[in-house]
Design a protein around this nucleic acid. Sequence first.
DNA 1: GTAACGATCCTC
DNA 2: AGGATCGTTACA
Length: 175
Amino acid sequence: MRSRINNNFFTRDVLEVAPALLGMKLICYDKKGLQQSFTITETEAYRGEEDLACHVSKGRTARTEIMYHEGGVLYVYLVYGMHWMLNIVTGRKEVPQAVLLRGIQGITGPGRLTKALGIDKSFNGENMSESSRIWLEDRVSNPLFITTSRIGIDYAGPEWKNKQWRFIVKGLPEK
DNA sequence: GTAACGATCCTC
DNA sequence: AGGATCGTTACA
């Protein structure tokens, strides 16, 4: 029996948490109230105000306030007017970081992921170690993974664009 | 009040 | 290659 991941896991640095999420089970109730289970296959790290790809680099605002919370809560926001992005806040209080969930088994792409799970704005701020509708369960083994640069952040400039902060389970089936 | 811009995805 | 589509943000 796997156990629910508690807050000690999320309060670590995002660069530890992002790869450690690979292979974990994301349990979530869908729109019909049915419990669904998904293996996490792709994540991306966003780390602090100095990281020009991270939303908090543009200042502490109403939207990004949740990233300053202690790790373990969700940061959900809308991009391009139509896609919800699901992030897990990490690190200690006042240390703004988050992991973007980009893929789960059978589904690639952060927008497709939230659509499949029924994630929307109502999940913003949800606590992963206490929520009754979404949580994580420990992995059985540590999957091998590769790293690449992050996607869709050209505006952040080469230094941050080139950080190998995207983590993908190795050997995923094609499409 | 207005305007610009996305941590994307689908279709052509 | 281009369009969809709207919340957030900055600025007047």
